[in-house]
Design a protein around this nucleic acid. Structure first.
Lengths: 133, 133
DNA sequence: GGGGTTGCTCCCTTTCGGTAAGTAGGCACC
DNA sequence: GGTGCCTACTTACCGAAAGGGAGCAACCCC
């Protein structure tokens, strides 16, 4: 797929995207954004600024190398995160939110914060539900 | 697991939940919230108010019965959605956000809206990335 | 007894995601 | 000068889980 011209871009912007429609590209995008790994990586980069690969790995405990790399690649491809290789020795790679990624990270960080803040309520609800059955 | 006493609840509230930790319950919760189906169901209920099962199915095109039921059960168990069976004929079941669910649905709706609004930018970024490689 | 609503269950395929091992490039030690 | 090590991946393998489809249950009016 070639790079888009401004005209093509304007054409696309006329389209109304609706994630409720099965075939709509925006549902696919919503799906990729709806991943705990995406949420954790974006939250980490928002809270701590630019981070090196190993720093992200340390922040998000239990994330495998494979998962991290894969998530970062996807985020880079979608223009949410920028990747910069510094020719130090050994090589170090820094990841940072792009403006686009920054506009999203606030939203997903708030979801993560909600989960942490409302964990007790959810646990109570679960206990009651499990009793009731 | 039995229903919690107020004392147990207060005990729990002292705990700091942190989704960056692999073993933390809040990461597990974040994972269940990070699902396109959860996002779509919560968004639908927020935008349209209480809905019947068949209305949700119609709103979220392409969702299988199994997926819908499963998602709604999980949301009910977590106290985000209330389920009410009306003994009409045939039986009708309405789902509605609880106050807890309402406090979350705004956040996930904003993520869904972000995906729809920024679809073009992401597609442009993808095209450029695929060119570059 | 057919039909419409809301499920549940079994089967099957696809995808997710962890582990472990290998790669690259350059320095550094002995 | 071979060996080793560091970061940041990449790949192959494989078990676990997601998720679609189809079929069945139950209810009661018509």
């Amino acid at each position: 797929m070639p790079t888009m011209t401004a005209a093509q871009r304007r054409e696309l912007e006329k389209i109304q995207f609706d994630a409720y429609l099965a075939e709509c590209k925006s549902r696919e995008l919503l799906e990729t954004l709806s991943s705990k790994w995406v949420a954790l990586v974006l939250s980490a980069l928002r809270e701590k600024g630019a981070l090196r690969y190993s720093e992200i790995a340390r922040t998000i405990a239990g994330a495998s190398q494979k998962m991290l790399t894969q998530t970062l690649r996807a985020l880079e491809r979608d223009g949410l995160v920028s990747r910069e290789v510094e020719p130090t020795v050994p090589v170090s790679v820094t990841y940072e939110l792009t403006p686009l990624g920054d506009s999203l990270s606030g939203l997903v960080l708030s979801v993560k914060a909600w989960a942490e803040a409302n964990m007790v309520d959810v646990m109570v609800a679960r206990a009651e539900y499990d009793d009731r059955t």
